[in-house]
Write a protein that binds this DNA or RNA. Sequence first.
DNA 1: ACCGGTACCTAGCGTTACGTTGTACCGGTA
DNA 2: TACCGGTACAACGTAACGCTAGGTACCGGT
Lengths: 134, 134
Amino acid sequence: MASQMTEMLKGTLEGIVLAILEARPAYGYEITAQLRDEGFADLAEGTVYALLVRIEQRGFVDVTKVPSEKGPPRKVYTLNAAGRAQLDEFWATWAFLAGRIEHLRAARTDSTTSTTGTDSGSTHRTTDSTEGDD
Amino acid sequence: MASQMTEMLKGTLEGIVLAILEARPAYGYEITAQLRDEGFADLAEGTVYALLVRIEQRGFVDVTKVPSEKGPPRKVYTLNAAGRAQLDEFWATWAFLAGRIEHLRAARTDSTTSTTGTDSGSTHRTTDSTEGDD
DNA sequence: ACCGGTACCTAGCGTTACGTTGTACCGGTA
DNA sequence: TACCGGTACAACGTAACGCTAGGTACCGGT
């Protein structure tokens, strides 16, 4: 169905995972569990693994195989220098986008207060008086 | 290019346009110009038109054709009740996601300062007990 | 012997933004 | 007149991303 969340996660999920890895190295299953725990309940396991493969191939993380007594060995991902640079870029992009969107929300709150037709100056004023409804 | 921005806009651009339309009805070319003016300089014209077609087909907007003395008639989009509901959903999703991400940023700033355990954080405890090598 | 939890991986699908191209109308310039 | 650029819309294929839906492998408890 492509819920709002699904589409909004595109582009941000990578940054979220990088941020998690910045705090401390982790493996896929752990990251998935943590995200689910933090509210992303519907997040699919496969999504995280695919993302990890991507950021590994782009060289944002270093990988270490650690044997576990339960199941197959864990692939522990550690953020490296390139990853930190990417994370910085993510924060910059996020800051810009969040700023624009918060600006929109602020403008909306502003417009709800006034009942008086205060507007006369729109930036674009092509002023079509041609009311010819076809 | 698929810069950070491109992927991050997926899912958010629709909400942005709906928010713009909430302020006042507008037509495609105008919306594109406004977005470019507000910092989204690289935004493609075709992107906005495709998005408008989408939200029209989903019934979030009402459309009125208004002839202009320059070029073809404008398709003026007006947010309707369904659109406002969708916009509300957008704000809710955005608030949640922004909250999570800001939380990540805060945690990151926090961890750089000291080693004092701010909280147990993860309710999850999958943490490595693998100390005792297999 | 079976089920469930741990831990990993893959293939195909739907949605989205981008790049490009085309149409149509108008005013200004050569 | 003929051309160019700005206004305004639309359609096509492509790339990227997250989701669905599977699969493999190991282990302990019922």
